[in-house]
């Protein structure tokens, strides 16, 4: 889409664009280019010599069992967070859609966690699950479950999973509710007249009509779980115990900054770049479709 009527000035638009373009070049394109370049280099551990190795770093990374298990863990974690935040949100939205009064107040409360930093959300849930003192861990111990995210990898994973999903429920709720409210009531009434019971109505009419929203949220939540949960993991488990909560972003950060393995960490960064590009392309294709019908 383009405007027909524009201003004739020739220099002014460049001045207006200059700040954004300068920042983009210096802090986005230059480092991204560096990351790609570094991913093809091998540096000796003391930093004395650098050698061009082509795609060897990628080969090494993708053949590294530790990396592959981190990738597997990341996918499990991401789909876990997505399911755990979307399913309750859908249920809540369906219920709120029926409530005439109070919907706004519900919205206000439910969306609060979205405003909270991932790391802070992680801390709140870590506290609830603290062995011996946590308000949730304590009753669990009474019934014989010795919950300890400091020692047990699964326990730790569940805590970061819950904290990450909890933050996102209100967001998904808002979009599901908006989606539900945009379904014409006449369609649902028609289905009711056709004799469809409530549950059946939901699965045959409402849910299919909601599918654009669902798909959109799926992508948004996957992106969130992939990239924005670094704070939860860093604050709560530091990727541990062992490597049991280490996800791809965390590993890229750890290998690059703590382990200082620049070549391999850059190769990881480039792989992540491809994942972002994939997710962005899917997201924008979806939006294009939304615009066109």
């Amino acid at each position: 889409m383009e405007r027909k009527v524009v201003f004739p000035q020739k220099l002014l638009p460049y001045l207006l664009l200059a700040p954004q373009i300068a920042i983009t070049l210096v802090f986005f394109f230059w480092p991204a280019g560096q990351a790609i370049w570094m991913s093809t280099l091998l540096q000796d551990p003391f930093g004395f010599s650098v050698q061009f190795v082509g795609l060897e770093n990628f080969q090494a990374v993708l053949q590294d069992p530790a990396y592959l298990s981190t990738m597997q863990r990341t996918f499990l974690f991401s789909f876990g967070v997505t399911a755990l935040s979307m399913i309750p949100a859908l249920l809540l939205a369906v219920m709120a859609d029926r409530v005439v009064r109070g919907a706004t107040a519900y919205k206000t409360i439910l969306v609060v966690p979205y405003a909270i930093a991932p790391a802070v959300a992680g801390a709140l849930w870590l506290f609830l699950f603290q062995p011996s003192i946590g308000t949730i861990a304590y009753p669990l111990r009474l019934i014989g479950i010795d919950w300890n995210p400091r020692i047990d990898g699964t326990d730790a994973m569940i805590v970061v999973l819950i904290a990450s999903a909890w933050k996102q429920i209100g967001y998904n709720f808002l979009f599901f509710l908006a989606g539900l409210q945009s379904i014409p009531k006449s369609l649902i009434e028609a289905a009711a007249i056709d004799g469809a019971r409530e549950i059946r109505r939901f699965w045959t009419i409402v849910f299919p009509l909601l599918s654009p929203t669902t798909f959109f949220l799926l992508i948004v939540n996957l992106t969130y779980a992939f990239f924005d949960t670094f704070g939860v993991i860093h604050a709560v488990t530091q990727g541990g115990p062992g490597k049991s909560t280490e996800v791809l972003i965390y590993k890229a950060w750890y290998d690059g900054l703590i382990a200082q393995d620049l070549g391999r960490s850059s190769a990881q960064a480039v792989i992540l770049m491809f994942i972002v590009i994939g997710l962005t392309v899917i997201q924008f294709r979806y939006i294009e479709r939304k615009v066109h019908y």
Partner: peptide
């Protein structure tokens, strides 16, 4: 220029940690 700005969507901090620190 427009595409340059658009592409930054695909370059979050997370994918360029080390070189960004150098810059």
């Amino acid at each position: 220029f427009f595409w340059m700005i658009f592409i930054t969507l695909m370059l979050p901090v997370e994918v360029r940690i080390v070189p960004t620190i150098q810059v």
